[in-house]
Computed example of a mutant assay.
Amino acid sequence: MVAHDQAENASFITRLMSGAGTADGLVALLRQSLPVYEALEDACRSVGADPRLSAILDPRLDRTEALRADLATHAAQGRACSTVVPTVEAYVSELRACVADPAALIGHHYVRYLGDLSGGQIIKTMVRRHYGIEDGLSFYEFDIDKPKVYKDAYRSALDALPLSESDRESALAAASRAFELNHRVFLDLEAAGIR
């Protein structure tokens, strides 16, 4: 998927992962993530009983409280970010609109949480290695013993969701938009001079 490749290879994230960024860049990324996860998790709670997605919802995936705790930890260490880039507002609006289209929420849920369970683990390892950060990384920590087994079970549950063809199209389109929005967040951070 082109949108996925663009997001994964954006210069902001590749710089952060290679050690050419800064710890402040990580904090800025966490700051952008907070309103996105607040909106995603609010939407999931609003439509959580809908059988089209109830089987993939799991409170162990929720990230809002971990993000708040991480940002407080970084602020206590003198690293804070008040900037919220414009794309985050568009992202939040899209997630709020998913309450009216729960099938679209499936695409966003998949991209965010499976990304956190996969690439997020790599980000955590790399920022520890490059920037010496040990605290303020609970966003990347899940109460899940075997992430690979969990991800496989998630994908199986996803495949078994009772979706119509139009639901599937809506979920796939939303997943593509989620990757695109993530890429645009990285571009906005880059444009803001955040490294």
Rank of each mutant, 00 (worst) to 15 (best):
P51K: 02
L26F: 15
R155V: 10
Y113R: 11
V47F: 00
R168D: 09
G120H: 03
L163D: 04
A178D: 04
G193F: 12
T64S: 15
D135F: 01
H109E: 09
C98I: 01
T73H: 05
L163K: 01
I122N: 02
P59N: 14
K151Y: 11
L29V: 07
E94Q: 13
S164G: 05
N182S: 12
D42M: 04
A10L: 03
L16A: 07
F142T: 02
E190W: 06
D143S: 15
L40W: 02
I194K: 03
L114D: 03
S166Q: 13
A192W: 05
T14V: 15
P51M: 06
D188C: 05
D135T: 11
E134T: 13
P162S: 08
S93C: 10
D116M: 06
L137C: 10
Q77V: 02
G193C: 14
S54V: 08
V92M: 06
A55P: 01
E8H: 05
I194Y: 02
A75I: 03
M1F: 03
E8M: 08
L181K: 04
A75F: 08
A175V: 00
L172V: 11
R68I: 07
R45K: 12
Q6N: 08
A39K: 07
S170A: 15
R52D: 06
C44N: 09
A7C: 10
T87W: 09
D5M: 08
V84W: 13
Y154I: 00
G120D: 04
A72L: 13
K146Y: 09
C44H: 07
R60D: 14
M17L: 15
R112N: 08
P147T: 06
T14C: 04
L117I: 13
A39P: 04
P35K: 10
I123P: 01
R63W: 03
F139A: 05
D58N: 07
D135M: 01
L114V: 09
H183V: 02
D167V: 07
A90W: 01
R15F: 05
A173H: 10
R184A: 13
L189F: 07
D62T: 07
A175L: 03
S138F: 03
